Computed example of a mutant assay.
Amino acid sequence: MRLARIRTADGVVTGEYDDGVVTADGEQYEIGDDAALLAPCEPSALYCVGRNYAATVDQMDYDIPDQPDWFIKPPVSVLDPGADIEYPGWTDELTYAGELAAVIDRECSDVAESEVSDVVRGYTILNDLDALDQPGRTARKAFDGSGPLGPWIETDVDPADLDMTTHVGGELRQEANTQQMLFSPAEVVSFLSERYTFQPGDVVSFGSPANPGLVEPGDDVEIWYEGVGTLENTVVAQE
């Protein structure tokens, strides 16, 4: 099942998405001018993991981590699917990174790996934008709109073996499978839950495959994960 959050003329509703239509409380809303997809959750934080694909570690000449290497994006980083990515005027090196992400279903901490599926509502897609020329991870990754998220939450997918691609301007930039992760989604969620108390709607992303790269105003970015969907956003110059 796909759970989508939409804005309608009457407000924000969450319902089941199927073929361009969201059903909520017996009402049907067709995605279009009168019903727009929003980010599928409202996280108190986005817990993001880096260096989680061996090919990425090799490409970036990093050491292979002995535990998940994480950082946090704030709620203001969330950007709706289809919304424009505003290229910040204070960076000259903005990059994309197509990542699978879990959405937490309930308040929880100290979750065993075997119990992770019980606390995850489902899976979605994060574009972990990064201003490479800025000093430190917070300056690079934790700015307004730095986390396009969506298009919905897929509740019936096994994250262990999913193909993915990222296209920029129609050109294939990333291609991988989640089997190539160094730490599985269950390992990451369990590890972070030992350090943080997750809240409903929090997001845990699992890192980018090789070839995260630069974008420019005018670029369309499409990130696809098998069984989940496609997150699409266009980069525009900041006004």
Rank of each mutant, 00 (worst) to 15 (best):
A160G: 05
R5F: 10
L132H: 12
K141W: 01
D66I: 05
L231C: 01
E113C: 13
G11T: 08
T234G: 15
T230M: 04
A24F: 04
V168Q: 00
M1Y: 15
M181W: 09
T91I: 05
E175I: 15
A160L: 10
C108A: 13
D80S: 08
V22H: 03
T166V: 09
D18G: 09
G218M: 03
A4D: 04
R195A: 15
E232Q: 11
W90I: 07
L79W: 01
G229K: 12
A97L: 01
G98C: 01
A142T: 06
D105V: 15
T56E: 07
F71W: 08
A97N: 02
A139S: 14
A36F: 09
G145R: 04
Q134H: 11
W90M: 13
C48F: 15
R195V: 15
V103A: 13
G50K: 10
E226M: 12
W70N: 14
E171C: 02
P185L: 11
G201M: 09
P185G: 07
D25R: 12
T14R: 10
D144H: 13
V188G: 13
R2C: 09
P88M: 11
G32E: 03
R7L: 11
V49H: 09
R7M: 10
G98S: 01
E113H: 09
C41D: 06
A9D: 11
D105I: 05
D128Y: 04
S117A: 13
R140M: 10
E154P: 06
Y96E: 00
T197W: 03
E222H: 02
G201Y: 02
S208Q: 04
G32H: 02
D19Q: 11
N177V: 05
Q174S: 05
D34Y: 07
S208T: 10
L214W: 13
V13F: 13
D63T: 11
W152P: 01
Y29H: 06
T234H: 06
E239T: 15
M181G: 13
F198P: 01
W70F: 15
E239F: 09
R7N: 12
D118C: 10
G145L: 13
I153V: 04
P75M: 11
E226W: 05
P185W: 06
V103W: 08
N127R: 00
T23Q: 10
L214Y: 07
T91V: 10
P217G: 11
P212K: 06
T23N: 14
N233W: 00
L162V: 01
G89R: 13
P74F: 09
I31P: 00
S146W: 12
G147T: 04
Q134T: 12
L231I: 00
V221R: 00
E27K: 08
I223V: 06
D144Y: 14
Q174W: 06
G98P: 00
I125G: 02
S190H: 14
S193L: 03
L46N: 01
T166S: 04
D133N: 14
A139Q: 15
F198Y: 03
V116S: 06
A139I: 08
G20D: 11
D10L: 11
D202T: 04
E30A: 11
G218I: 05
D92Q: 15
F183Q: 06
A54K: 09
G15M: 07
S117C: 12
E16A: 15
I6R: 14
E93M: 15
I125E: 06
V203W: 00
A142P: 07
Q28S: 14
D118Y: 12
T197P: 02
W224E: 14
Q59V: 13
